[in-house]
Amino acid sequence: MLEIDGLTARYGRAQILNGVSLTLGDNEVVALLGRNGAGKSTTMKSVMGLVRQTGGSIRHGGQEIRGRASHTICRAGIGYVPEDRRIFGELTVEENLEVGRRPAREGAPQWTTEHLFQLFPNLAERRRNLGKQLSGGEQQMLTIARTLMGNPSLVLLDEPSEGIAPVIVEQMANVISELKREGLSVLISEQNLHFAREVSDRAYIIEKGTMRYEGKFSDLDANPEISTKYLAV
């Protein structure tokens, strides 16, 4: 589904990614773990064409997408949920969903507003409210729903559990399981090891723009020194 190989990226002169490699299979949920500033978000933004990449390759379904404009990457079936949510605050919930709407795509589940309102009942109640009137958790739901309106086959979820109440984190975990059941692939970046373990099949650990670990959570739990070294704050 997604193969990243030797990706390098920078902001101005600061090198953020020093050769990141990662693969994600069909219908797989993979966690990208790492501390603040390790390069998780930059990896996702690079896939989406939102930061300038300097080298390496990003293939999606066998096609090279590095260097393409971000709207064509989205149209190829990659949905992006940014960590700071980036809700359109002056638009209603329904209008936010409208911005994300794309035609149906073969080989990817198709979402409708009504289906999404079933998945996120809170949003249904607030469909005529402005984005800025929602709570943090509701905004997080909306940003995921908005991305699903594009009928992606792969979703990049950047820190979905950040800054929201524990009850909603639990709901979020259910949503991710639901996405997997629908046949989506999900790359999820997390600092919350507990949450990541609950929803993902495998994990990568990134530090200073380089991959340090790749494997199953069971292996990670068997070797606690790895998490201590790369994840402990």
Partner: peptide
């Protein structure tokens, strides 16, 4: 409000 995000949503 946010041009870049609109692009990332396929527009």
């Amino acid at each position: 409000q946010d041009r870049e995000m609109v692009g990332a949503l396929g527009v």
